[in-house]
Write a protein that binds this DNA or RNA. Structure first.
Lengths: 334, 334
DNA sequence: TTGTAAGCGTTATCAC
DNA sequence: GTGATAACGCTTACAA
């Protein structure tokens, strides 16, 4: 378990440590002969450079820290994929951490990440107070994904939730719906822009909006539908705040004897793998998650390379994915 | 962006660097007065110790490396939660990486993790060749989750898939089923023990086994069912290799006009969040995922502390979760 | 092209 | 209790 160091390699190859360092970093100013000798010695010893010692000595970091607020959410997996792709491509390593959506734990995770002196930090939908983010930003470049911020030194990458909900409403209107309700995500992340988008889209078509309080879970979606049924005034289409909620809506409707989409159309938001299941086949709004990650990494690396100092605020365009839960109204009566 | 060092804190507090170091590590042999002064100076400067310099100087690591083969799989999220809980509790930091189930990328991820000289490495369902794992194990403690191994220096934590499938078969038999088919996971991870468990359980009840080739996706499950229907010989119950497959099975059955569980009972494997959705409500086999993570971390930390050298091989007991997709056979005819 | 030597931010070992 | 000072494994001027 005792790993060889650069000195061991140098001794074995019969050269100085500095030369080994040059070879390891692929410097061109090394004779082919020495290079080969060093490489062979390293190979024989099973040597690979010590990342921490390297970054300590060079006063540079090739590490990007990533804090994922919730690993259970597949949304973040794709964002991390995007980050990883760009980072790897540019010779950076990712170190990941999670805070489980709890401020105290996230705060600790943040400190831990910072103790590695990363070149940059990507925070995915963090729930820590803004002050903590500001403090982190004093120490390294920070990009926020899925959370907006006015902090001067902080970049942001977000989904254009207003536009996403507008897409859903447009789709339903074009099918002929007029009584379209929105099941709202409450205080949840991104719920506000989605609600605004819904209201604006309804207004632009001269339709009466109907916002029903709900949450980001399937149980909440089902509950909201039961409330609607009790009220005796079911809309012809429902736009949920996310896919989970939409699945709850569908099952409550079916339990009450309604068919989707024949009697009621349903649209989700997020295009999770759940929506793609043939058993669900949900019409929904897709967010370019992988792109979120790529852009976040690029924003960070631009700052690292000193190419930019002004904050950048990206708002990405979501898209509509039509599957089997939407149809013209009254299709059931036919 | 220039972070304060221990020397800065020492200067500001009017003490030596060594004393700051003692305070930072919570040494008891420091006067209250000095301790307070140091802590205040650190606070004012926003100082926090440099993890890499620290581990370099102390020749110890408080980092555990984790390679997640696939971030998209929620299974791993819970394993990581378990790892994180134990690690944090014992003062260790996690650094995470992913290889996307591709050997070449996993290999790189492994190298990157190793370059941080972690105290231990947890590999979650890795797909790299065994030789790579052996090489890693020469450099640090390694624990494998979701993959077995005979390597001497490597610990393993696994689900007892044989037992899991036996539980499913027992449940169906106790409901009165005798014609029970298994949709097999092919060459997928853990498919073999599950198949063995199925065959053994059927044999022990004197029932004729029926293994149908399939895969770990909902499309494959649907395809397999269509094959069964074409053959004109539908079993009364189906045990899928995992939850996704089971959902495919259910939708294909329903499309063909059969009801679940009235006409056919279906059991999944994994107890993913999908299975818990009310829209699906799948009877399935639960793996103690969080426990996997906890045990893996503990195995690693035992080695780190030098408490154990012999490999440990944990085989955890899965459990049956009964929901709405199983019922006595012929319930549909009633 | 190669080697020497001075750090990088810590901890650890001694003295005092 | 507290403070010098030598490591830790590497990079980086600067010299040769």
């Amino acid at each position: 378990m005792v790993r060889p160091t650069m000195d061991d390699v140098a001794a074995r190859a019969g050269v100085s440590r500095a030369l080994v360092s040059l070879v390891m970093r692929g410097s061109p100013r090394v004779s082919e002969q020495r290079r080969a000798a060093v490489l062979r010695a390293a190979e024989e010893l099973g040597y690979s450079p010590h990342a921490m010692a390297r970054s300590l000595a060079s006063r540079t970091s090739h590490v990007l820290g990533v804090m994922v607020s919730d690993l259970h959410n597949a949304f973040f997996a794709e964002v991390v994929d995007g980050l990883d792709a760009v980072a790897t491509e540019q010779g950076f390593d990712l170190i990941l951490n999670t805070g489980g959506r709890r401020p105290a734990r996230e705060r600790r995770a943040l400190r831990s990440l910072l103790s590695f002196r990363p070149a940059g930090l990507a925070l995915l939908s963090p729930v820590v107070p803004s002050a903590d983010i500001a403090r982190a930003a004093e120490q390294t470049s920070v990009v926020l994904v899925g959370r907006s911020s006015r902090l001067a030194g902080v970049d942001t990458v977000n989904d254009d939730g207003e536009r996403g909900l507008a897409l859903a409403v447009e789709h339903l209107v074009s099918l002929g719906h007029r009584r379209i309700a929105h099941l709202d995500g409450g205080g949840g992340s991104q719920a506000a822009p989605r609600r605004r988008g819904y209201l604006a889209a309804m207004a632009s078509h001269g339709l009466a909006p109907r916002v029903v309080a709900s949450e980001y879970t399937d149980a909440a979606g089902a509950r909201a539908v039961r409330g609607l049924l009790d009220g005796g005034d079911l809309p012809s289409a429902i736009v949920s705040c996310n896919d989970f909620n939409a699945v709850g809506v569908i099952s409550a409707l079916e339990e009450a004897g309604f068919r989707v989409p024949a009697d009621v159309s349903v649209v989700g938001y997020d295009n999770t793998s759940l929506a793609a299941l043939r058993h669900v086949s949900l019409t929904t709004i897709d967010q370019p998650r992988n792109e979120f990650g790529r852009l976040a990494a690029e924003a960070l690396l631009q700052r690292v390379r000193g190419e930019r100092a002004e904050p950048v605020r990206r708002l990405l365009r979501p898209s509509l994915v039509v599957r089997s839960t939407t149809a013209p109204p009254g299709a059931g009566r036919a």
